[in-house]
Design a protein around this nucleic acid. Structure first.
Length: 470
DNA sequence: TGAAATGTTGGGGCG
DNA sequence: ACGCCCCAACATTTC
């Protein structure tokens, strides 16, 4: 009789779970446990929506486990202490977990591995981050060659997914905390069943949304994205499940446009792996800009403007719509994320780390690697980032990607009556239409807090100065 | 996974 | 009819 522990961290699923599989293979009795770590949940402001998504996901996991004769043990405290107790209580000979690559997780797991028989398995990404390397052994810092190497690595890989164990032995009687009761989320119902539904709806059938993805992903006014990010964040879906579904969709694509759509979505999954790999090899990106020559920018860091940005009161409708969507729902369309990031960093000249922190405090899908990667990309400070002089014009971005202004109307209701002509540049509206459309500028909706043209010049100077001074 | 500034071209108005 | 100029449209360069 051999007992093992399946330590759940951010892999809230039974299907295609290599850690769970290993635990089941080598143990007659598996104890699934989730440990609430106060260092993670109590020392930093977390969005209630993300917490609720996690609690809901654990409830769903517990339900699936119970349907198989098992259940989820919940503990609270220092993971090392709790695991040590559990190993003793359950007489376990091994602890299995899916490997995570944030600096925090790696430090924690190293310490635990010194004391306990901890086995870490892949699943968060397709491959261990250090298995995709250049010929000279160095990690990739440019996306395109990384993605080519990633594809090469995938070539020889089996496409087999692990199915959920059908039956699991009941864990021994050990104490478990009750899970906090989460507030339900209509937009993102937690759990792997929902995740698999979404993946299937997105990737299968001749009219699967993935086939329109290349054209529609940039349109925040249309429902063209997968909405899988929170599920990937908490491992309610494995990277392999997503990647294989994308590959299969590409193979079954009815035409070239469709194939391109599937390819484009797969590319986004590779960006996710790229940023996880970057964080693995360069953990300091959590603390400072990847590019040394851009570590000393003279940020303005104006608190009043930062507040206006957070509240969606900048006077630029596309920015305000996006920031209000974030505050209200805990999610933001990807194109909109780029627009508001460019605006914070390059129009307001506020340190990208302020934006990074705010996103982590708001996003249901908030993930350190992807969030940091995205912000450093937008700020031009990261690996293979957008060049520093690429500055989005919020009016042009609005006209291009929200042509009718529907996205703005949805999230900025005070502008709901404006015609497309004025929806992205209301300050250019004469007095008469302001009366007609019921929006008095400076009263119902603010004037722009910065002039984009001037702000652009200012930022180009600040970045150039940082580079010269370096 | 930009945008603005600058350069080039060619059709048409006009003296 | 011809040359000049304007400027929109497109291309290239620069930030």
């Amino acid at each position: 009789m051999k007992n093992t522990i399946w330590w759940v961290r951010r892999d809230l699923r039974l299907s295609d779970n290599q850690a769970l599989y290993a635990a089941v293979q080598s143990g007659d009795q598996v104890t699934p446990v989730f440990i609430i770590d106060p260092r993670l949940t109590e020392t930093q402001p977390l969005p209630q929506k993300r917490i609720d998504f996690l609690w809901g996901g654990l409830q769903a996991l517990d339900k699936s486990l119970r349907a198989r004769g098992s259940r989820l043990i919940v503990r609270r405290g220092d993971p090392l202490e709790e695991l040590a107790h559990l190993v003793k209580e359950s007489k376990a000979s091994a602890v299995y977990a899916e490997e995570d690559f944030t600096p925090f997780a790696r430090r924690r797991d190293r310490a635990i591995a010194r004391e306990l028989p901890l086995h870490l398995l892949p699943g968060l990404t397709m491959f261990f981050p250090d298995s995709v390397r250049k010929a000279d052994g160095n990690p990739y810092t440019v996306f395109t060659p990384f993605s080519k190497a990633w594809h090469r690595t995938l070539q020889g890989n089996s496409r087999k997914l692990l199915s959920a164990p059908e039956r699991m032995a009941t864990p021994i009687e050990i104490t478990s905390l009750p899970l906090p009761n989460p507030v339900g989320n209509v937009q993102f119902p937690p759990g792997e069943i929902e995740a698999l539904h979404r993946l299937q709806n997105f990737t299968t059938g001749n009219h699967a949304p993935i086939y329109q993805y290349a054209d529609q992903r940039d349109r925040p006014d249309l429902p063209g994205t997968s909405t899988l990010s929170p599920y990937l964040r908490f491992g309610m879906l494995s990277a392999r499940q997503a990647v294989f579904a994308a590959e299969q969709a590409a193979q079954l694509a009815p035409d070239e446009t469709a194939r391109q759509g599937a390819q484009t979505w797969l590319n986004e999954l590779i960006w996710r792996e790229f940023f996880i790999s970057i964080l693995f090899h360069f953990p300091d990106v959590m603390k400072e800009s990847f590019r040394p020559e851009l570590r000393q920018i003279s940020w303005r860091n104006n608190e009043v403007e930062f507040l206006a940005w957070k509240e969606g009161q900048t006077g630029y409708p596309i920015v305000d719509a996006a920031m209000r969507q974030l505050a209200k729902t805990g999610w933001m369309h990807n194109r909109a994320r780029m627009i508001v990031a460019s605006f914070l960093v390059k129009d307001l000249l506020i340190n990208w780390r302020w934006g990074e922190r705010w996103f982590m405090q708001m996003l249901v899908d908030g993930d350190p690697a992807a969030n940091n990667g995205g912000w450093q990309w937008s700020a031009g400070t990261g690996t293979d980032a957008a060049p520093y002089f690429r500055i989005f014009n919020p009016v042009l971005q609005g006209k291009k990607f929200d042509p009718q202004g529907d996205y703005v109307r949805q999230w900025v209701p005070e502008l709901a009556n404006l015609p497309p002509k004025f929806i992205h540049n209301p300050w250019e509206m004469p007095h008469q239409p302001q009366i007609q459309f019921n929006v008095l500028l400076g009263v119902e909706y603010p004037f722009p807090i910065v002039d984009h043209t001037l702000a652009r010049e200012r930022t180009l100077e600040a970045y150039q100065h940082a580079k010269v001074a370096f």
